[in-house]
Simulated assay, not measured.
Amino acid sequence: MRELSGFAFNSWMIISAALVLLFIFGPLAKMISAPSWDKMLATITDKQVLASVRLSLTTAGTASLIAMLFGTPLAYLLARNDFPGKRIVESLIDLPIMIPHPVVGIAMLSIAGRGNKFGELLDSLGVQIMGTSTGITCVLLFVGMPFYVNTVKAGLESVPQRLENVSRSLGAGPGTTFFRVTLPLSWRYMLVGMIMCMARAISEFGAVVIVAYHPMIAPVLMYERFTAYGLAWSQPVAVLLILVSMAFFMALRMISHPSGYKK
Rank of each mutant, 00 (worst) to 15 (best):
A107W: 08
A107M: 13
M108Q: 11
M108T: 11
M108F: 13
L109V: 06
S110F: 05
S110Q: 12
S110I: 10
I111N: 11
A112Q: 02
A112L: 15
R114E: 02
R114N: 09
G115A: 05
G115S: 11
G115Q: 12
G115N: 14
N116Q: 14
K117G: 13
K117S: 13
F118K: 04
F118N: 12
G119N: 08
E120L: 07
E120N: 12
E120R: 10
E120F: 08
L121E: 00
L121S: 11
L121D: 02
L122K: 03
L122M: 12
L122Q: 02
L122A: 04
D123P: 08
D123E: 13
S124I: 06
S124P: 10
S124T: 14
L125T: 03
G126W: 01
G126Q: 04
G126V: 07
G126M: 10
V127N: 01
V127Y: 03
V127D: 00
V127L: 14
Q128K: 15
Q128Y: 00
Q128N: 11
I129Q: 01
I129W: 04
M130W: 05
M130V: 11
M130D: 04
G131Y: 03
G131W: 06
T132Q: 04
T132I: 03
T132D: 03
S133W: 11
S133P: 08
S133V: 02
S133H: 08
S133M: 03
S133Y: 05
S133T: 02
T134E: 04
T134W: 07
G135H: 00
G135R: 03
I136N: 14
I136S: 14
I136L: 11
I136K: 10
T137A: 13
T137M: 10
C138P: 09
C138Y: 15
V139T: 12
L140E: 15
L140A: 05
L140D: 10
L141E: 04
V143R: 03
G144F: 06
G144K: 08
G144T: 05
G144Q: 04
M145H: 05
M145R: 02
M145K: 04
P146K: 01
F147P: 00
Y148M: 02
Y148C: 06
V149C: 03
V149A: 01
V149W: 00
V149I: 13
N150Y: 09
N150L: 14
T151Q: 15
T151S: 12
T151V: 06
T151E: 14
V152W: 05
V152D: 07
K153R: 09
A154G: 09
A154R: 05
G155L: 08
G155P: 11
G155N: 09
G155Y: 05
L156C: 09
L156P: 03
E157M: 10
E157C: 09
E157V: 06
S158Y: 07
S158R: 15
S158M: 13
S158K: 11
